[in-house]
Nucleic acid binder design. Structure first.
Length: 489
DNA sequence: TCTCTTCATTTCTAGACAGCATGTC
DNA sequence: CTAGAAATGAAGAGA
């Protein structure tokens, strides 16, 4: 440790440190514990910065125009960017993340306020890593200290090997006692043991099925042997417990008809093999199959399939139903109950809350396929573009799995509906646009424009002149889609 | 009396990853 | 099961 002499001494240590960093013409990452804090912190900092720069204005402009319509988040980010300080967290649109990361690497952007995302994933070194929060909210625990490993990752961002001979990792304590706690736990302490991801039962299920399906292992003994040699067993000292879990997993996989057992040898069934290939949690697959079997009794709507997908482990964490929304969401759920294949658990069951949360996620996705824009989703559901992106990706993957299972079960009419819903999710478009979306180079925005101009399907595209089309979607796109419908522009 | 500002009190919410899969009636 | 931001309420200043 070394002592830093700061010429600034306000009651806001982060800002003092940032100013000092800028005086030295260096860069800093400021780590905070929530997305909101990251945004606010960046705003607070940018407010104290007076300089402006053409490069920053250019970046801000790019940031503002990554989406067809900028969200409030976009504007805030752009405003900060004009002063050379930005925020970064999982809610940002992937393109905006790229812009920021690149600008920081080039040294254009000097300050990033971020959540721990930035420390774990990519390699973005800075002269200073300012760790403002060493505590973070954890459910049932309140504010609690983050793992040592995470601290080390953040601290490890300090120092740019090519530019600096050293780096500074600075943790901020608000009291003396907190300062000693930080020193003991993080600076002098040992990182806690990492436990393998296999520890989670769903993952074990998936692995067991996949190993048996690919005939790598077949007998119970081989299975045990396999897992005992893994990293997981190494960490997880209780061998008996491991065996018990494996036994349970095998039993349930047989019950769900993904495995069968002949002469002490396990083998995957036809469906089991497909599930293994799809790489979804067998439990998810099982619930999908059960739902697909009983679809003839209900009214089927997009929300039917969407809820099926949102109510899975893969889609965790779901959106959270906020206090204010509670009544509204409950009412909606009652209204849609005829279209839902997972029925709600009793209000007194512990899973009721989870059920509502996943239902809210489903409702949000339904708004997306009704062509609501990102700003609306942000305001209404508090989903930011980046989180939306992740949700859509997993939802798409699960919808694919669902459609494959429907094929396997010979549910042709249902399959059609599922596929439609899947495409609508990919594009965020209403059903009426599906025909146009088949064209390459046409997404939700252009399809909507065309539709608005009475061009509603491929036949209409054929009938319309290139010149007319060009007025709507631009010359090159117009020529492109004309070619796609088999005409020479 | 009304509007705007400031300060105190209450209410509300809170990070993020990897893993992987195709073809359409 | 806590910290900090946002929302709300109450009090004060000025026209």
């Amino acid at each position: 440790m070394r002592t830093i002499n700061l010429q600034y001494k306000s009651d806001e240590p982060v800002i003092d440190l940032v100013k000092d960093t800028l005086d030295k013409n260096k860069q800093a990452l400021v780590f905070v514990n929530s997305k909101r804090s990251a945004e606010k912190c960046a705003e607070d900092i940018s407010r104290t910065l007076k300089k402006s720069d053409a490069a920053w204005t250019d970046l801000a402009d790019k940031i503002l125009h990554t989406l067809p319509k900028p969200t409030q988040q976009c504007s805030r980010l752009a405003a900060c960017c004009k002063k050379g300080a930005v925020f970064h967290h999982a809610g940002l649109h992937p393109q905006q993340k790229d812009i920021i990361e690149e600008a920081f690497r080039k040294g254009v952007i000097k300050i990033i306020c971020c959540t721990p995302t930035l420390a774990a994933g990519l390699d973005l070194p800075a002269f200073r890593a300012i760790i403002r929060d060493v505590k973070r909210y954890a459910e049932y625990k309140g504010m609690s200290y983050i793992p040592v490993l995470e601290y080390l990752q953040m601290a490890g961002r300090a120092g740019r090997p090519k530019f600096d001979t050293y780096g500074e990792a600075i943790a901020i304590a608000s009291t003396e006692s907190e300062a000693t706690a930080i020193t003991d736990k993080y600076v002098n302490g040992e990182p806690e043991e990492i436990y393998s991801k296999l520890a989670v039962e769903p993952v074990l299920r998936t692995y067991v099925l996949s190993l048996i399906s690919s005939e790598i292992i077949q007998t119970a003994d081989e299975i045990k042997e396999f897992f005992h040699t893994t990293f997981w067993a190494h960490q997880f000292k209780e061998v008996n417990k491991l065996n018990v879990i494996i036994a349970i997993v095998l039993e349930t996989l047989i019950k769900w008809e993904f495995l069968h057992k002949i002469d002490e040898k396990y083998a995957a069934t036809l469906i089991g093999k497909r599930v293994a290939q799809l790489y979804v949690d067998p439990f998810t697959a099982h619930t999908f199959i059960e739902a697909l079997k009983q679809t003839n009794v209900t009214t089927l709507k997009p929300i039917t399939w969407i809820q099926l997908v949102t109510n899975t482990l893969e889609m965790r964490p779901p959106l959270r139903v906020k206090q204010k929304e509670y009544d509204e969401i409950t009412q909606k759920m009652v209204a849609e109950t005829g279209a839902l294949l997972y029925k709600e658990p009793s209000m007194f069951e512990p899973e009721y809350e989870d059920y509502l949360n996943s239902f809210k996620t489903a409702v949000m996705l339904c708004d997306w396929i009704e062509e609501k824009d990102e700003e609306y989703l942000l305001q209404t559901y508090d989903v930011r573009p980046g989180e939306m992106h992740v949700k859509l990706k997993t939802a798409d993957w699960l919808m694919y799995a669902l459609s494959e299972l429907a094929t396997l079960l010979h549910q042709q009419p249902i399959l059609k509906e599922i596929v439609k819903t899947r495409i609508r999710l990919q594009y965020g478009a209403k059903e009426e646009l599906l025909a146009l979306l088949k064209l390459e180079g046409i997404g939700r925005v252009r399809a909507r424009k065309l539709f608005h101009n009475k061009i509603k399907d491929l036949g209409d595209v054929r009938k319309e002149s290139v010149e007319q089309l060009a007025l709507i979607v631009g010359k090159s796109v117009a020529e492109n889609i004309k070619r796609q419908v088999g005409q020479n522009p």
